[in-house]
Structure formats: C-alpha cells, structure tokens
Simulated scan of single mutants.
Amino acid sequence: MLLFLVIPLLGAAAILADVLRFRRLRLQHRPVAPLRMLWCGVTDLIPVAVPLAGLVVSDNTTGYMAAVMWLVWIWMLTVLPRLVYYIFRLLHLRRTGIVLACGIAAALIWGATLGRTDVHVSRVEVCSPRLPAGFDGMRIVQLSDMHLGTIVSPERELTRIVDSVNAMRPELVIFTGDLVNIRASELDGQAVRLLRRIEAPVVSVTGNHDVGSYIKDTVSLPRERSLADLLAAQRAMGWRVLDDETLYLHRGGDSISLSGVSFDPALRKQRHDSELEATNLDRVYAGVPDSLYNLTAVHLPQLWEQITARGYGDLTLAGHVHAMQFKVRLFGRAWSPAAWLYERWSGRYDEQGRTLYINDGTGYVAYPMRLGAWPEVTLFTLKRCE
C-alpha cells in the first residue's frame, strides 16, 4: 500500500532531521533535555519497529492489528507536525511552522475522534431509460468496508450506522465487502446483534479482507475456513450473500437483475492494481439476459470496465478504496492520495449510460482516522428517464 511506502521515507527524514538538530544544539553548547531526545527517538523509530514486530508475531491477530493501527497514528501525530516545523524553521519562518504544526496535530486528533465516527449520508439519484417503470423511485442503501476488527467503539459506531440506514427506509441494503478486517470471529455476538437491527433486506459480497488474505497462521486457521465461517454467520443473521451469482428483483410487475461479484483470492496481491483480470464474471452473469436493467455489487472498482463490457452494470456499486481515509475538499472538488493508485477512487462515475459508485466505507484500516473521507452511507434513488 502507498501509505507503507511513504511512512518509512518520512520516518527516515524525521530521524535525519532530529540527528542533525540535536548535533547542532550540542555544537552550540546548548543543553538538550534527555527526555526530549528519547521522545523524538522513540517516535521516529515506529516505522522501523512495526515491520520488525510483524516479522516476529506468529499471526495478525485482531489485537495486534489494532495496536499497529494506533502506533501508526501516534507516529503521524508526533512526527509529521515536527517535520513541518523543521522545514519552516529552516526557511526562517519559525512562527509559521509552529502554527502549521499545531494545525496538523489538531486535524489528526479531529480525524481520530469526530472524523472517524461522524456518519455522512450521500444521496444519489440514478436515471436510466433501461430501468423498468415498476422500479421507478426504488430506494437502495449501500454500505461498505466496515472492518469490524478495527472498530474502536463498536456499540456506538455500529449503532450510528444502523440508525442512519433505518432512517432512510430503503427497500434494499447492499454491502460491498470487507465486513471484517482479518478473520471471521470479528463478526462477534455484539456486531451480529447490532447489524440485525437493519430493517431492510441486506445483500452482500466479499472483499479482500473477508477472504482471510491477511491471516498469517493458516495452519491454526485456514483462510478457507475463516471465509466459510464468515459467510455462514452473515447468512445466519439474515443477509443474502451473493457468491458470484445473480438474483432477480421484482417490483410492480417488472424485474431487474442483481449480481454479486465475490473477491477472487487469486487477486490478493494485485488488489490495488489499476488493471485486473477477473476470472469469475462468466459465472456471475451466466444466463442473465443483458436486456434487463442490472445492478452489480463488487468490492473492487477496477472491475467496472470488464463488467460493462459484458453488457451489465447499469449501476455498479463498489468499495475497497476508502479514499485512503483522507480527502481534501476545495471549491466543490475533492482530491486524495488514492488518485495516485486508482483511476476511479471515490463517488460517482458515468460513462455511456452506465454508473459506477465507489462508497468510501465506514470503517478504517492502517490508522484509526478519517479526514475528509467521512464514514459514508449512500442512498440511491432509481429513476426511469427517457
């Protein structure tokens, strides 16, 4: 992931800056507080310590991944403002550096508190002449990327999500993958109890985290068993898991198709690539008339072009990217580092009468923070238009 390429580089820059700064202070015979040196040294070395710990631990347990997530955030909070301050001090703009450093620290704290938990509802109207009259006005909610294993306050955060969904009174909820972070057991009794409160029928597909991609100790817990347990748990709480299959929705005497594309474990290492070769789409759309309006739920947005090339995906719902949990919004436009990796990374895209929507998700990985890319619940209203 891009984040884990940038962090070591910034970490190395911080270490170098601190070494040079402390050396200069010594040369000028100024006293240097040992605790300050220790604090800088410890925080600078987090990008080194985390990968080393990953080599030592036998498995990516839920607790370990949560600890890593917070360590990365602590590094961001303590090192990034300091780096900014050093740069502006070098430019003889010390006061500016202090203000900017404090602003960055405040933003990081905001992102890890209100930014992480404040659910935003996006309302999207999708119009198509292919939509049957019977489905005109149908309301569908999309959820994505909960990453249950890393949720800090499950009771509060899941309650907010579920209440937001129920308040919109959708006829259908579509979940587009990454329900858990590492293993099936993260969908525990508390999560099941809260998610069962969703009043509308729920259809789901799997994401790269759901299939056990990050389980290290596959002897104790084979990835296939974790996936099977997760699918069974979802079905037990009333969710309909679309495992490379299509079902038909009926309303007002008309029909449309709803297809679900499972995450292919063979794509685990290529999950962030801009071009992917999907091997399961023939199964997904086998026997499905392309004359019907088609909804497709898929985790990876990179598969959209392959879906539409087959004549499906009038509306395709995806997740996966999270906008890297960081989005700058300015003058009605938005930007995220995700744009360096993905051609389509957040929100709505329309091409040749078909629509892709990438939901920013509600959970978080790598660090327990969201800035600009707020937790998202999306309400779609389908409209028939000529």
Results as ranks from 00 to 15, higher is better:
S204D: 08
V202K: 01
L2R: 04
R36Q: 15
L303T: 04
L187W: 05
A236H: 00
P8Q: 08
K216H: 09
T378R: 02
L330Q: 07
E277R: 04
D163Y: 00
R36V: 14
S257H: 05
R354V: 11
G177A: 05
G363S: 07
W70G: 09
V121G: 13
G177C: 05
D350K: 00
I98K: 06
I307F: 09
G311T: 05
A167C: 03
T279Y: 13
L52G: 03
I140C: 11
V56T: 12
R223V: 14
P265Y: 06
L295M: 10
A12L: 12
V261F: 09
G207H: 01
C127R: 06
R329G: 09
E351F: 04
Y85I: 11
Y364A: 14
H29F: 03
I140L: 12
P31Y: 12
L292M: 09
E186P: 00
V152Q: 15
R251F: 10
P265E: 15
V321D: 13
E343R: 03
A338K: 04
P337M: 07
V192I: 01
R95F: 15
I98D: 14
F263H: 04
F263C: 09
R268A: 15
L25W: 03
R183S: 14
G212S: 05
I104G: 05
A266H: 11
V121Y: 04
E305M: 02
D18I: 05
L93N: 12
I109W: 11
D314K: 02
V377Y: 01
A286P: 05
D350C: 04
Q325L: 06
R223D: 13
Y64P: 02
R21V: 07
P81F: 04
L93M: 14
G137A: 13
A266L: 14
A112Q: 07
V219C: 10
F380S: 03
T61R: 10
L35P: 08
Y364V: 14
Y214H: 04
E376K: 01
R225F: 14
R329W: 08
L71Y: 04
P8G: 01
I151L: 07
A286R: 13
Q270F: 13
V121F: 10
S226D: 03
A366R: 03
A17W: 11
I161T: 09
G189F: 02
T62I: 11
N181P: 00
I74P: 06
V42M: 15
I7E: 15
Y357W: 12
E199R: 00
A339T: 12
V298G: 00
E277Q: 04
A334E: 15
R235N: 07
P375V: 10
C40T: 10
E186N: 01
V365S: 14
G149T: 05
L16T: 12
L71F: 10
V119N: 13
G207M: 01
S259M: 09
R23M: 14
T78D: 15
L242P: 07
H250W: 08
S255F: 03
V173Q: 06
D243E: 12
G115Y: 10
T113G: 12
L9H: 10
L330D: 09
I215C: 02
D59I: 00
T381I: 13
G372C: 08
V180P: 00
E245P: 01
G63W: 13
